[in-house]
Amino acid sequence: MSKATLDPHTAAVARPGHRGFKIDPTAALALPAVLYLVAAYAIPLAILLFAAFRTPEGLSLANFAGFFADAYNWQVTYNTLWSAGMSTLACLVIGYPTAVALARSRGVVQMALLVSLILPLSVGVVVKAFAWTIMLRTNGILNQALLGIGLIDAPLRLLFTPTGLVIGAVNVFLPFMILPIYSVLRLVDARLPEAAATLGAGPVYRFFHVLLPLTLPGIIAGVAFVFSLTVSMYVVPNLLMGEQFMTLPRLVARSYLYFRNEALGSTIAVILLVIAVAVVMGSQYLIRLTRHET
């Protein structure tokens, strides 16, 4: 912002009503990306939206009304939101303490933690999901570990269950929760919790009244990231759940590839898009709100 007031070019861009409005020449640097996104995203999106609203009688909401008139589709929508919600919650519960450990560690330990976080991102989702089909078996490593430490007496059925799906999804999407929280935690002044402690605040009080409010923007960003990714996941439910747990992205694929029902596929895709956009915009609003309050 300060640069905008110093740089006359930027200032002109920032105030379109200003006389002699000129486009900042540096904006041209974004041209390749803009052209790419227009061709690869904006135009297909426009076609998708058109297909979703097009009916033999003209443009209408009939496709959406038809979709929501079927109780089965409500179940599929619930499955999608449930799996995304549970995966996001699990990522948050596991990811927050990890981000704290990462932010407080130094040197080799921090490097090792970061590498162990980033490196798995280079492994494809299909490979990870296949690996989980092995680990979640009744004689898989997870059941053996639980049996070994005495938490269970008999192997649990995890494969092709919603629990197994959440476990697999957390493995894939956990870094997208940890990294935003970590980036915010790094900016938190370490003296603030210490100051609270000198004023008599216990660890729990310090966490809920000092650290948590300060890291809320990171949490919101992480939740938005993970929820958007898990609500649209296709490969993980396909491999870890089979046909027994239908989700919206899988219904989109089936509508296009199998039923050749473009209207249905586009309608579901638009519903998914609305969910994702609502999450992103909602998170932006919450971030602004928390900044305003702090």
């Binding site: 078996r137 092709f160 089979g242």
Partner: peptide, 20 residues
């Protein structure tokens, strides 16, 4: 009795081989 309803046979056949 149903463990899985598959669309990709090789992965499911693997489960049969492994005894799952």
């Amino acid at each position: 009795n149903i463990l899985n309803i598959y669309t990709q046979m090789p992965a499911s056949f693997n489960l049969l081989e492994q005894g799952e």
